Amino acid sequence: MKRNLMDRMINSIEWLAAIFVGIVALNIFIAVVLRKFFSTSIPDAYDFGRMLLGILIFWGIAATSYRGSHITVDLVWTWAGPRMKRVIDVFATLVLLLVVTVQTATLFDKVRLTYTDHVLTYDLNIPTWPFYAVAWAGDVSAVILIAIRTWRLIFHPELLEEDTPQSHSTE
């Protein structure tokens, strides 16, 4: 199957989200091992942990927004016919695009304020704005992926059906 630029971008964003899951897990594992066996801790482990968790959340939103694999309530959608299902999907994705776009603008303001206020971590005095900027990049990725999903829902729904688990045979 030939992969176009959009598919490569989608896969790259999903891989980045997975990498951030690994980084958060590694941070927690190292902090626990150091505390349990060596009675010490990583300086700023709490600050790093909470900022990495924020990064993970925003990149996770990006990864799940395109696939539509997040938790949903599909009672009305299940009872609808194929045409109405598509209308519901397009409407829901447009609303999600609007909400995440506003969230992205708000988060950029947080990055800007953190930079201008020169907010630092507690122990090592590391600037926190780069962590917020990486989280914001995840939110920007979510907007891009939701826009791609909206485009495909409206003009090329067959491209989305390839990605759904129901269309893959289980042999």
Rank of each mutant, 00 (worst) to 15 (best):
A105K: 12
I88M: 06
W79Q: 09
E161G: 06
R83S: 10
L56D: 02
S169N: 09
L120M: 07
F91G: 01
W136L: 02
F37M: 14
G81T: 06
T64G: 14
F58E: 02
A18S: 14
S41C: 12
P165H: 01
D109E: 08
I23H: 03
Y115L: 08
D123E: 11
F108L: 07
F155G: 04
A62P: 09
R149F: 06
M51F: 09
R67H: 12
Y115C: 04
R149P: 03
W77L: 04
M51V: 10
L96E: 06
S41Y: 11
V119M: 07
K85E: 01
I23P: 00
A80F: 01
D163A: 12
V24E: 02
L56C: 06
A105G: 15
F48S: 04
S41L: 09
T72F: 08
F37L: 15
D7P: 03
M6R: 15
I42K: 11
V140E: 00
P82F: 08
V111R: 03
D74N: 14
D74L: 11
F29Q: 05
E158Q: 09
G68I: 13
D89C: 02
L113W: 02
D109N: 12
L53P: 00
W129L: 07
A147C: 08
V90P: 00
N11L: 11
M84R: 09
P130K: 05
V76N: 06
A18M: 12
L124H: 04
Q166D: 09
I126C: 07
V76P: 03
F155I: 02
A137T: 06
W15Q: 13
W151P: 02
V90E: 00
E158I: 06
A62C: 11
E14P: 03
M84C: 06
L56K: 00
T64P: 05
P130N: 06
I71G: 05
L52I: 08
A92G: 10
I144K: 03
D139F: 04
D163Q: 14
A31Q: 05
T128M: 15
V90K: 00
P157K: 07
S39Y: 15
L75Q: 12
I88T: 03
R50M: 10
P130T: 05
S141H: 01
L113M: 07
Y132V: 02
P165Y: 00
A92W: 00
F91I: 09
L34Q: 07
I28S: 09
G22M: 04
D109W: 09
L52G: 01
W136T: 03
S69K: 10
G68W: 10
V95M: 09
L56V: 04
N11A: 14
A92V: 04
F37T: 14
L120K: 01
D163M: 11
M9W: 12
I55Q: 01
I42A: 11
S65E: 07
F29R: 04
A45H: 14
Y132K: 02
I23E: 03
T104M: 10
P82A: 11
L160S: 06
V100N: 09
M9T: 15
T106M: 15
I23L: 14
G138Q: 00
D44A: 09
A18G: 13
A92P: 00
V90S: 00
L34V: 08
A142L: 01
F29S: 12
L26A: 13
L75R: 12
L124Q: 05
V32A: 10
I19T: 13
T104V: 11
V32D: 05
A17S: 08
L124Y: 04
D47Y: 04
F48K: 02
L52S: 04
F155W: 12
P43A: 14
L5T: 14
H156K: 14
T128R: 11
